[in-house]
Design a protein around this nucleic acid. Structure first.
Lengths: 352, 352
DNA sequence: TTGTATGCGTTATCAG
DNA sequence: CTGATAACGCATACAA
């Protein structure tokens, strides 16, 4: 048996009414007699009628769906963000359609094209690491598609953006390392084009400079694919630890980079923080449980998702004037944990 | 400016053709002259024409979307599964619409109702912890909606199911504890109704029995909401450790239960595995990095997602006879790690 | 108060 | 080879 659904026509036929009467009765229109309404409503209930959302979409030229493109769902930061997105979407009667770019420009473009060929009302996106050409986003934006960027944003496009204060997060993390006696601090970053890379590196450099430490470009390593491939991280970490002047600490500027370098260091039997200090961005559920106490920069991913969705829906339903786009900048949470050497395992949450 | 898309009509008007001609030219129909085709195709390309998927859905009575309902996206097991789902869906030209039940029966029902009122072609689902009444699934199934269960399945419904060998996983984990000298092994489980709970507890009990240990029902604690709320886990763990005959090890039969009890034990300053042994299901990205080495039962979530989607799409496109539904049972990966006490931190992956 | 006709974008059927 | 028209399910302007 095929999945056959009951339509307004079936009700009309069964009740000897016209489709328009049924339609109006169902929508509780004032111009329908109470009796007719009652009959229709009861029958509809009985045969379990539900309007066809696709027909509605076609008619109303809206799908009540929002698209989401992230690099990878199975990344705690993104899955937490999607959690927030789905929450708000659900409250507002929207569906969420998920796509993964896997950091690839091509996949991103394809998804973008498909989603926006009218099956979604708006789009929430975190740009892929490989993406260096933003023209497809620009064009989409110019064609009037409601768009909200989060995490990895494109500054040149004038719409809402939701990020954490990446500069400050990296600054504070670097300062923390310096204050704990580390001096030769290396940075592991994503693709240079990404907004998050630029902001985080700026914070890192500023902290070094403010503490009288010269920045050394050989201490900055980039991972083109955002650490999606462990080999990338392995190569970067290997280069760092086998350099003539080896860094005494690493600042990992991305989730995958943090867990990646932790894995690599472990494999190389390099102790953290005994042999090398490590602090990094991470939203993994269990990263706080990792010993030796790993200090981490955690993003309020869920809230970012919520805010982005809220803004997007306002944009879609044009509740807001489209003149004053802001960039919502949230505070990252820096979770500093005493090193194992101190035997003090208490956790100290420093929020600013 | 509103997001106005170009339709087949626009092309027809611009080129002085009929919509049907344009439609056929675009679909490369044999009955259209090469010249007309060329003109249409070029113009379509030029003005960036893309067919409206919603109109197509209405016409073809299919949306090329599959629905997914899980308890929580921000749970590594599910996000990894969704990763797999999205991969296969993408390859087959399907969209993925995500919903979260948050372990609630009501939310699950609402999502189910909405999704299946014809905006999806099929559904992949992991049942909510609170769900004890399966009639809505049964009805849906009877109405012919292609359905694939994964992880938390409903045995009474005859369709494809994708799970790991939960019995064996729990059996092996329990045996591992026994072989390491633990004798009073408690189990922390989800809702008793869930298939995974029943299978895992059966494996746990069988292992105890096979090793001459009597099962003790006071050693089995249930968390109605699947550990979604930490208080639940806290209460269960507290009851266990403050009992007269305290267990010397805990087997956590769910992701949230594993990380939850780890957190609680840490907060209570109960050392693992010094004071109490712990092994549990976990798919968290970083759970392998947790010290003291946490032994875990890991599910091949990504593959489960892939397989479920593959089966669902076959079902949707009726490539398979609907007579021989199987339950795909994959092997969980038991990751045994030597305890910190042994100072041997090498990892030993035991697959069966 | 109810019914008829039209359109949303597309494809299929039937004429020409 | 091409065009006109109906249909998918629904809402609505217009008639009655």
């Amino acid at each position: 048996m095929k999945f056959e659904a009951v339509t307004i026509k079936d009700i009309a036929k069964a009740l000897g009414l016209s489709t328009s009467t049924v339609s109006r009765a169902l929508r509780d229109s004032y111009e329908i007699s109470p009796e007719t309404k009652k009959v229709v409503l009861e029958y509809a209930e009985k045969i379990n009628y539900h309007p066809n959302p696709i027909a509605l979409s076609l008619k109303e030229r809206r799908s009540r769906s929002i698209g989401v493109i992230v690099s990878e769902i199975a990344n705690s930061f993104f899955s937490q963000a999607i959690d927030g997105i789905e929450s708000i979407a659900y409250k507002n009667g929207y569906n969420v359609i998920i796509s993964q770019s896997r950091e690839s420009f091509d996949r991103e473009s394809i998804h973008l094209q498909y989603l926006t060929s009218r099956s979604i009302d708006g789009l929430i996106i975190s740009v892929a690491a490989e993406t260096k050409d933003f023209s497809h986003f620009k064009e989409l934006h110019e064609r009037g598609m409601p768009l909200v960027f989060f995490d990895r944003i494109i500054n040149e496009i004038d719409t809402y953006k939701v990020i954490v204060d990446n500069y400050q997060g990296a600054y504070d993390a670097t300062r923390y390392l310096i204050e704990n006696g580390f001096k030769r601090i290396a940075a592991l970053a994503n693709n240079e084009i990404l907004s998050i890379t630029r902001d985080r590196l700026a914070g890192y450099k500023a902290a070094l400079t403010d503490h009288g430490i010269k920045t050394d470009d050989s201490f900055i390593k980039y991972c083109e694919h955002g650490g999606l491939r462990l080999e990338e991280v392995e190569q970067a970490v290997t280069e760092l630890v086998s350099a003539e002047t080896r860094p005494d600490a690493i600042l990992a500027l991305g989730d995958k980079l943090t867990t990646g370098s932790l894995r690599i260091l472990k494999a190389k039997k390099i102790e953290v923080p005994g042999d090398i200090g490590l602090i990094g961005f991470s939203n993994s559920e269990t990263s706080e449980l990792i010993e030796p106490p790993l200090s981490i920069i955690k993003q309020p991913a869920f809230e970012m998702g919520e805010i982005a969705t809220d803004l997007l829906i306002q944009l879609i339903e044009s509740k807001r004037p489209v003149t004053s786009f802001e960039t919502k900048k949230l505070a990252p949470q820096i979770i500093i944990r005493e090193s194992a050497k101190n035997k003090n395992k208490s956790m100290l949450n420093v929020e600013f």
